[in-house]
């Protein structure tokens, strides 16, 4: 709940992205979740942002003075759950 986050606190566990890196991405020009993702990889890991997306939205909203709706959410591409190359290769297409 506290909004005073230290820069060294993790935001995205999968890709080990910190609050400071997200803030840096915002000062580099990111204005939404996708912008932060492209600059930092936050949300590109195993959980595909299930854990960190809300946290990234909070930081964006706070830093930019925007509403949660304005900072958007992540883009989605298949597969939406991790699958093996074996399954892909042996798939019934």
């Amino acid at each position: 709940m506290s909004l005073n986050y230290d820069d060294d606190m993790f935001v995205c566990r999968c890709e080990e992205v910190t609050v400071g890196e997200v803030r840096q991405a915002i000062s580099d020009g990111a204005i939404d979740v996708v912008g932060v993702k492209r600059r930092t990889r936050a949300g590109m890991g195993l959980c595909q942002g299930r854990t960190c997306e809300r946290l990234v939205q909070q930081i964006l909203a706070q830093e930019l003075g925007k509403s949660p709706a304005e900072v958007g959410s992540s883009s989605v591409r298949p597969p939406v759950r991790p699958i093996t190359f074996g399954a892909l290769a042996g798939g019934d297409f």
Partner: peptide, 9 residues
């Protein structure tokens, strides 16, 4: 859970 999961459309 299977050792060889299959992708089915």
């Amino acid at each position: 859970e299977n050792k060889t999961p299959v992708l089915t459309n």
